[in-house]
């Protein structure tokens, strides 16, 4: 797990949430570029998770290893849920659902970074 990459993902999650919050404020459904942005973010998170799992296998010891690994799997779930809800709910409410799941991803990424760095010897 790379910390710079991790904080970039966290920031991306918050930016996506802000974009979707604005979309909902304008009473609009999630649009194509937003779906694509969410998919790209999900792909980037998957890459980060794979990097982190390889680092743990190679001996990196995050604090509370079991919790860390649970978060690593869990962080992949909110965006697919939000994307699916946004696709079937073509109203502002779909925007709210994807906005919420984007915030959740950002929060989970923060927690992952905290666990990763608390016992780490350097950037993974």
């Amino acid at each position: 797990m790379n910390s710079v990459f991790g904080y970039s993902l966290l920031t991306a999650g918050l930016l996506l949430a802000a974009w979707l919050g604005l979309q909902s404020y304008r009473r609009r459904a999630v649009n194509g570029p937003q779906i694509i942005a969410a998919l790209v973010l999900e792909g980037a998170i998957l890459v980060q998770s794979v990097i982190a799992v390889i680092a743990v296998i190679n001996g990196h010891e995050p604090a509370e290893k079991v919790t860390f690994l649970a978060y690593l799997g869990g962080v992949l779930l909110p965006l697919p849920l939000g994307i699916q809800l946004a696709r079937i709910e073509r109203t502002r409410w779909g925007s709210i659902a994807l906005c919420f799941t984007s915030v959740v991803v950002a929060v989970m990424m923060l927690r992952l970074l905290q666990l990763w760095n608390s016992h780490s010897t350097g950037f993974g």
Binding site: L85, E89, G94, A97
Partner: peptide, 14 residues
């Protein structure tokens, strides 16, 4: 009411 319902589904699922 599907919109609020689906937002609640997202909240409860998470």
């Amino acid at each position: 009411n599907s919109g609020p319902r689906r937002v609640l589904i997202a909240l409860y699922a998470i």
